[in-house]
Design a binder for these strands. Structure first.
Lengths: 340, 340
DNA sequence: TTGTAAGCGTTATCAA
DNA sequence: TTGATAACGCTTACAA
């Protein structure tokens, strides 16, 4: 029987206060356009009725929500947490509210969520990575909702973005690995079809191999989901090869931690028996033993600057550009030269 | 200067398709109330214009959003991540969308976000912990927006809730610690004033001390923020005491990991020189060396059941009750008897 | 099956 | 300073 008791409206407040709805509205939005006396009457009516404005109605009237939507692939691990936190803080400073949705790395869910956010009147959108159906970009275009891509820098794409060059950074890391003397490497990556960060990182590894005279075709790659367990399982599989790798390069820290965990379970010493590297430099990286050699991503900086830029786009105060941040290699205990 | 190009409306679609807005609306919401032919015309117009319904307008018309809001204290660490993921999955299964906001453990921000979510038409709200200004509960009451409290069970509160008894669980853990022979314990907790989970957990420790004939007044407690660094710092401080504790009980796993990290830095052996315990049993707990003795919280179960119950409340298909889940102690390497 | 038109709760323009 | 009133874009009786 769903007896939805109606919440008080502007009208109720107006009646209660003996003024017009216009006055109440002004009182709420531009308090100084109203006499102190009326203001008091109105405010006490507001309190008495516990009035709360209807967002939908306001949006319809002003066509502006002061809301930014962010759609991230996952909340389950910390990959995006710190950056998002900084993003939110900066938005708040500018009077914007952040709404977050997570797509579980699924393109269909992400698309649904993009539409949902737009439909809900998000003034702008933060998206992760460039890879998605072009139709969705056209959609955003038509809806005139600016979107900013983060966590990835790619100057060939037209969308404004702020991130680092996944390929270049991973290449730098792979070069270190090779420099140390490793020749038999293997990779644990996220699915590369749908995740441009993942595929760019693998490309970076191949780049490094090429310029070191190694054959990228011989690089074993396991694609899996981003989870510690998945990383552990993949590691197990790689090490079971007839000629196991001396270094396992992981697509991110979560996978790398899984790899280290599994190494421990197999009684292997890291980095004595096998080196392991990650990507992201999340908190986990320095907690695990040995600490992870990884690529440090400027999470907070990226979050803060994404917020400023997106706000600029929303308020048409700046044009979208592709900004590249530096992501540098952090050498830690998990990487060492292979045993002679 | 801010030339906000208008997004296409139902009207535009109707005109494009040569039908009335009512028909378009029906076509979108009840496709089978419309001839196949009209449906096609309309749909192609929809596609052509890249039409996306205006959520605010729809909400105003039907007074229902199929949206659930969740306000969590933090996204920075994994405490709520897994539970929230399960929560979201269950909501999706029932056709609801989840919107998340994070309050950074600040009551004022949380209140702002509650109002914002309500204002945006959230059909129901998921909140963490019972402790907040009673006014906000009255507000939710007036607005007729059901709220469910999770991560905490307290049958003295009237609000529907689904969680575990923080006090009882922590008491069980503290009893284990005492059983092992520890007499000099210390606590690292989150701020207890504003966080009922934190204060209940400390109460649990005191309960255990009382029934073991120890004086709770002698228990050193450091209150700090939930972060690894904060945990490390607090640990440092505790161990600097003239008579340092043999066991440090932490309010959650994140603090405990910080403690272990700092122990390592101080050259102390865990659990040889000092035992450390956590609470939550997040992934981190089994990654750190030694693995954390902690209280296992049924994250996913809690998330899933919260979703069902909240949907039930929203659809007035069930009444709110306070459900208690079990959170049990997991003994791992970080806890051992004190040195003789 | 389709169209007409009222109403949802705001804001903003214009008069008073 | 205040009050009428017309939008805003959608759903849904009710009529055709």
């Amino acid at each position: 029987m769903s007896v939805k008791r109606k919440a008080p409206t502007l009208n109720d407040v107006a009646r209660q206060a003996g003024v017009s709805t216009a006055t109440v509205s002004r009182c709420l939005n531009f308090p100084d356009q109203v006499t102190a006396k009326t203001r008091e009457t109105v405010m006490s009516a507001v309190r008495k009725l516990a009035y709360s404005p209807n967002f939908g109605a306001r949006v319809m009237a002003v066509n502006r929500t002061n809301t930014i939507g962010a759609i991230i692939p996952t909340m389950e691990n910390a990959i995006f947490a710190r950056g998002l936190q900084a993003f939110q803080e900066e938005l708040r400073r500018h009077g914007y509210t952040l709404l977050v949705a997570s797509s579980s790395y699924r393109a269909d869910i992400e698309e649904e969520q993009i539409r949902s956010m737009v439909s809900r009147g998000a003034d702008g959108l933060l998206l992760i990575g460039h890879e998605r159906d072009p139709a969705i970009y056209r959609f955003l275009e038509t809806q005139d909702v600016p979107a900013l891509v983060a966590w990835s820098h790619d100057c060939t794409k037209s969308l404004p973005s702020i991130g680092f060059d996944n390929r270049k950074s991973m290449r730098a890391l792979a070069e270190k690995v090779i420099e140390m003397g490793h020749r038999r490497m293997a990779v644990i990556s996220a699915a590369m079809k749908t995740n441009d960060r993942a595929s760019l990182r693998v490309h970076g590894i191949r780049d490094a191999m090429n310029s070191a005279g190694l054959d990228p075709a011989e690089l074993p790659i396991i694609e899996t989901t981003y989870s510690i367990d998945a990383g552990a399982q993949a590691f197990d599989q790689l090490l079971a090869a007839p000629v196991p790798p001396t270094a396992v390069i992981c697509g991110n820290d979560v996978l790398a931690v899984g790899a280290i965990k599994q190494a421990r379970a197999l009684g292997l010493d890291v980095p004595g028996d096998v080196s392991v590297t990650g990507f992201d430099d999340i908190e986990l990286a320095t907690i695990v033993e040995p600490a992870l050699t990884t690529v440090h991503v400027p999470h907070r900086d990226m979050g803060t600057r994404s917020a400023s830029m997106l706000i600029g786009l929303v308020e048409k105060k700046c044009i979208g550009e592709a900004i590249e941040l530096e992501a540098d290699v952090r050498l830690r205990g998990s990487l060492a030269p292979p045993r002679a």
